[in-house]
Amino acid sequence: MRPIMLKGHERSLTQVKYNKEGDLIFTVAKDKIASVWYSYNGERVGTYNGHQGTIWSIDVDSKSEFCLTGSADFSMKLWEVSTGRCLFTFDQDTSVRRVEFDPYDNRILAVTDKVMGFPGSIITYKINRDSPTQQDTTPLLKIDTKEGFEKVSVAGFSYLGKYIVAGHQDGTISKYDATTGALIGSVKAHEGLITDIQFSEDKTYFIISSKDKSASIYDVDNLKQLKRFEADAPMNSAAITPVKEFVVLGGGQEARDVTTTAANQGKFEARFYHKIFEDEIGRVKGHFGPLNYIAVHPSGSSYASGGEDGYVRVHTFEKSYYDFKYDVEVTAEAKAHAGEQ
C-alpha cells in the first residue's frame, strides 16, 4: 500500500482523529493550528486558527458539526467544523491534555494538567447546540485528582456516556460515574504512564497503551483485563480495528532518547496485533520518529498515524489485510460451512 503523507504541521503531531463517517481526518500538533483533511485523497480542507500554544487534543461530534480542541494555552475551543470559525472558548486554570464529546454530543470532557498548585481534574460541560456561541462556563462536574492517585493523563466517556474512565500517570485506571462524579473503582493496569485510551465501537471495552512497553484491553463494567499486548518499546497510542479483530499499536523510543541510538533501533513502526490471540502479526514502517497517535477509520478500511516527525500517514488496507486468517479461524469456518450443508 502507498500511504498518503499529510504535511500540514510544522511540529510533532499530538492527536489524529477520524469523524464518524470517516471522510474527514482531524489533526492537531504542537504548532498552534488544527487541520482537517479529506481522508480519501488527503486534501486539506481547512485549518482552525486561534490557539496560542500546543494543541494537545481534538475531538469531533458525531454529526461533524462542531469540534473541540484542548490546548496548552489554558483553554479549550469549540469550532464550527465546516468554516473554521471559533464559536466559544472555555478558559481553564492549566493546560488541557485531553478533550472528548460524549456519545450524545451533549456534554464535553476535558482533562486538565496538574501544575502550578492545581490538582489536575476531569471537567465536564454541557454543550448548547442551538446557540453554540453561548455556552455555560459552569462545569457540570469537576473531578479533582483524588488522594492517593497520580495525575490523570487521558480520559473518555464509556457506553451511553454512563461512566468516565481515566488513565493515570502511574498506570492506574479509574472509573467515575459521569453524572455524579463518584469514584466507582480503580485498578493498577500498567507500570508506566497511560498514554492513550480508545474505546471499542460500542464503547463497552477500551484499549489503553502505556509507556511500560505494553497495551491492554479492559472492559468498562468490571475493569477487568481482557487482553494484553507486549511490545519492545514505549507505546504512545493504541487503536482497535473494526471489521478485522486486530489492534494497532504505535510508539517507539522516546524522542529525547533517539539521538543516543541508531535509527533502525528506534522501532518507529505501527504494530498490528491480533486482538484475540494477542500475537504480533505485522508491522508497517514509514515514520522516522515515534508514533504519537493512531486512529483507525470507522469502517476499518484505513488507518492514520501521526508521528513525532510532523507527518500524518494515511494507509488504506489492501486485500491481503482482509484475507488474513488464523488457521483455526479457517478450519472453524470450513466446519461451519460444512454444517450448513
Binding site: M1, R2, I4, M5, L6, K7, V284, G286, E318
Partner: peptide, 9 residues
Amino acid sequence: TQVGEEVHL
C-alpha cells in the same frame, strides 16, 4: 499532501 513510498504489511 504527498504520496509516500510503498510500504508493506
